[in-house]
Design a protein around this nucleic acid. Structure first.
Length: 400
DNA sequence: CGATTTTGACCCGCGC
DNA sequence: GCGCGGGTCAAAATCG
């Protein structure tokens, strides 16, 4: 009897896991998600045929009940497979629409002049380093629809966008801050306009010539909130704590790009210092640097983010913040139909087509971050901070 | 004494 | 062209 109960529980867990992992596939083909879903489906399929060893001793009516459940699960498994193929197809369509929306801008522009040509040659090496992370857009059936010339145009746009480095900004209560696992060297401090608290500038001191920098500043309106902004990618290996943070921020960026919070991610990162359940995110251009910045707000109270992830609302006004929800609750958006009326792919494609700034932000974020997520276990965004109790507390850290 | 922080000067992009 | 503001540099100061 215990075996039967345990087996039913197993089936329930598998059902829930499978459904939530399908949710997780929304508009992303991130390998980790695909792997997770694949292994879950495989496990479900295998377990369908791996009955408990003493099942033969169960009464026939119980066996029949279990067989019925198995049949139901098989059907559900089949449905999930069809959903998966449908979602994959929608994702490819979305990619197509994104590229189509990007094409007219460059195709209608004048031919490149000498200066453009010089710029091209000057940045060829940089382009080559950007391309791999951008190339994922040219996968699947896209290969049949994008000519090499168009691909180059899009590549140019990706380069232009990624010149404005995407940054990750984290808002957190100072008392909740822990070390991010990396060594930082302070190289400057400034009083910025509109905030009496000084802004401190740090450079990663772990690797030689590591380009990663971060800014730390207390919030002007709430001094208990510390805003830490990271920029660049580490060019060296990181300790476990830094990798953990990197996974968290990179995954947040990935989810932002895919427009959903996935249960598989939530499971994967639930043990991290910065917990997704208290996360809300937005991306915007900072006035001074024109950098697209993804902001992770860890000061908000936890939300029930395990609801079915849906489309994110997208602002049509590029001078404002794009309200992007990572908690599964889209924000209503003027000018766009209700998401109850449109599938996610339509909402996203409409918003991307409508808003060039969002498009640029996506390009920049994809260019600078997707490549990192591919090496997520080797590199990281964040590491030991001046707030790490084990490291020395800089004087300005107590001021900000 | 080397490593790190502090702090004023400088650079550069942007808006007017 | 000029002023403003953000970001960086580098010499001096401080720390362990």
């Amino acid at each position: 009897m215990e075996d039967k109960v345990a087996f039913k529980n197993l089936l329930e867990v598998q059902k829930k896991t499978c459904v939530s992992n399908t949710d997780a596939l929304n508009w992303t083909q991130e390998p980790s998600i695909r792997t997770t879903l694949g292994s879950t489906l495989l496990g479900l399929r295998l377990n369908n045929f791996e009955l408990p060893q003493n099942l033969e001793q169960q009464p026939l009516n119980q066996l029949g009940l279990l067989q019925i459940e198995l049949e139901e699960l098989k059907k559900e498994n089949q449905n999930l497979r069809s959903m998966l193929s449908e979602i994959t197809e929608h994702y490819a369509d979305l990619q197509n629409q994104l590229l189509l929306a990007m094409r007219p801008k460059k195709l209608s522009s004048s031919p490149p002049n000498d200066e453009d040509m010089q710029k091209d040659s000057r940045h060829d090496n940089v382009k080559k380093s950007i391309l791999p992370s951008w190339q994922f857009l040219y996968t699947g059936k896209m290969n049949n629809q994008i000519t090499p010339q168009e691909a180059k145009i899009i590549e140019d746009q990706a380069f232009e966008a990624s010149c404005k480095k995407a940054r990750v900004s984290i808002r957190a209560r100072s008392e909740s801050l822990k070390g991010d696992g990396c060594l930082w060297r302070k190289y400057g401090q400034k009083i910025s306009k509109g905030n009496p608290c000084p802004r401190a500038y740090y450079r990663c001191n772990m690797g030689t010539a590591c380009p990663v920098r971060k800014q730390v500043q207390r919030c002007a309106t709430d001094e208990s909130v510390v805003i830490t902004t990271y920029e660049g990618n580490h060019n060296h290996s990181l300790p476990q704590a830094a990798r953990s943070m990197a996974c968290t921020t990179s995954a947040a960026l990935t989810m932002f790009l895919s427009g959903s919070t996935t249960s598989s991610h939530a499971t994967t990162f639930s043990n991290h210092d910065l917990f997704f359940s208290s996360l809300s995110a937005s991306t915007h251009y900072q006035s001074a640097s024109s950098c697209p910045t993804v902001t992770l707000d860890l000061t908000q109270p936890p939300k029930n983010y395990l609801k079915f992830p849906t489309a994110t609302a997208l602002s049509s006004n590029h001078s404002q913040t794009f309200p992007l929800s990572l908690n599964g609750y889209p924000q209503q958006c003027e000018g766009l139909p209700s998401e109850k009326e449109l599938p996610l792919v339509d909402v996203l494609s409409a918003a991307i087509t409508r808003d060039p700034s969002l498009r640029a932000a996506l390009e920049a974020a994809v260019s600078s971050m997707v490549g990192d997520s591919q090496n997520i276990h080797n590199h990281g965004q964040l590491s030991r901070s001046p707030y790490d109790p084990s490291s020395k507390m800089p004087a300005e850290a107590s001021q900000i």
